[in-house]
Amino acid sequence: MVNALVLADLYKTYPGGVMALRGLSLMINEGEIYGLIGPNGAGKSTTLKITVGLLKPDKGGVLIYGKSVMRNRIEALKLTSYVPENPVVFKNLTVKEFLRFITGLRSIKWEEIIDYAEYLVEGFNLSEKENTMLYQLSRGMLQKVLVTAAFLVRPKLMVMDEPMAGMDPEAQHFFKKEVKRLVSRGATALISSHLLDMVERFCTRVGIINKGRLVAEGTIEEIKKIASEESSLEEVFLKIVKG
């Protein structure tokens, strides 16, 4: 089994003294949809930002398909796509310009992916917005644009922070369908979310993070066994997090 992502013993303290991660380790295998859940301030976004090289850990390392993000940043990130927690975009670009910008960074020719781009744009109901400036779009629409860009770059590892926030049900359905399709073709997904119902039904494995540490990990069934619960992930989550 190929390790798509290895996070080894990550520590991170912010300048203000807040200790966000305290020795977090996890391993995700190729073909998994890994859900990272945890209360606010648990360290989820910090973990994801370290994964894609936006933050430097004080200690520990990140390997994406065996490539170190710290030492071999470009090669590691070539395999990765990222959807940030907040839909920040280049607001004075149009949807189409933004997608061409992001794909161009990977030397992907637009002609090669135009069909897939059209499929995604249609799937997310963005067809009429292709030439709209991004500052004119709502939060949900921006989220769709960022997710479209993340799919378009043909990633082997998708790192997504609350990817469905603000999306309408139709777009959520399309998103899940597309993630499953990409994963069935060898991609891997690391998704942080507060939507526990979605994680329970959608993710193949789940990690629960609290106070900067991974406190439980496994398939939904395994997690439930850890908590000795037969109920929903939500109740198991609350039991684990609150001790």
Binding site: V52, G53, L54, R73, I74, E75, A76, L77, K78, T80, Y82, P84, N86, V88, V89, F90, K91, I102, L105, R106, L146
Partner: peptide, 11 residues
Amino acid sequence: EEEYEVLLSQP
């Protein structure tokens, strides 16, 4: 924000 979050997470 976008230059940091979106661009710097690219290769």
